[in-house]
Simulated assay, not measured.
Amino acid sequence: MSTSPSATSARTPSGEPSSPVPTVDGTSRPPSLPAGAREEAGLYAWVPPQGWQRVAQSGSEVHYTSPDSAQEIVANATPAKGDLLAQWQQAEGDTSKGLDYRRIRLEPTTFRGESAVAWEYTVMARGRLWHVRLLGFRSGGTSYEISTWYHPDIEAAALRVYDEVRQSFTPL
């Protein structure tokens, strides 16, 4: 086994040799996870909001609900198949039937410099108006979705939480 060239030549800022962790040529280190990250089914890791209720719908789909039930954050991973934007456009056909669905946007975007899809809409559910934001992207052979549902009257706080969770999301 050989170590990578950078592992054998690393130096500290003072010029002294450091003690790197060697890697085998052709391999990569697993992604660094933020403090407090929770791994889900070996597919992804994220830092969910503290004090929120966790419900696993399946091994790959996990929901967190705020203590006041005014916001939910969902992550999901599925095998990548076909065009993600086309799939979500098809799903919109089902979503838009009833429930006072109103599209805000469904369009290509980027996430961490890679292709992604953003879908944003409002809908009536459980007798209340909900604002929904979904972000979908692919990594390797997996499609990932990170979404939030929230009551519009808490939008500023809801988006702060959603942004923090999205930034912590790490495909494994």
Rank of each mutant, 00 (worst) to 15 (best):
R11G: 05
D100H: 13
P31E: 02
R160F: 08
A116T: 10
E114I: 09
G51K: 07
A7Q: 13
R105W: 11
R103G: 03
T95Y: 14
S32W: 04
G82L: 06
L134D: 05
S14R: 06
S9L: 13
E92C: 00
G98M: 02
P13E: 01
S147W: 07
T78C: 01
D100S: 13
G141E: 14
A70C: 04
A156Q: 14
D25K: 12
R126G: 10
T122W: 05
Q57G: 00
S28H: 10
A157W: 07
V55W: 13
V74H: 06
D83H: 04
A7T: 14
R103D: 06
V47G: 06
P30D: 01
R54Q: 11
L84F: 04
V161I: 04
S14I: 09
V21S: 11
V47P: 05
E164Q: 14
R105Y: 15
D94S: 14
T110N: 03
W130L: 12
D94A: 13
T8S: 15
P48A: 03
G36H: 10
P22C: 01
A56T: 10
R102W: 10
E120R: 00
P49H: 11
P22K: 04
T109V: 01
R105Q: 14
P34L: 00
S14K: 04
T122H: 01
A41Y: 14
E16G: 09
A7P: 11
A91I: 09
S6D: 15
S168E: 07
W46S: 12
S19D: 11
D25C: 06
A125M: 08
G15V: 04
E145S: 05
S139H: 13
A35W: 12
E145N: 11
L43E: 08
P49Y: 10
R166Q: 06
Q57N: 01
H151M: 15
L43M: 12
E155L: 11
Y64Q: 00
V21K: 07
A116V: 14
F137W: 15
S60C: 07
S69C: 00
H151G: 14
G93F: 11
V161W: 06
L134A: 10
P67L: 01
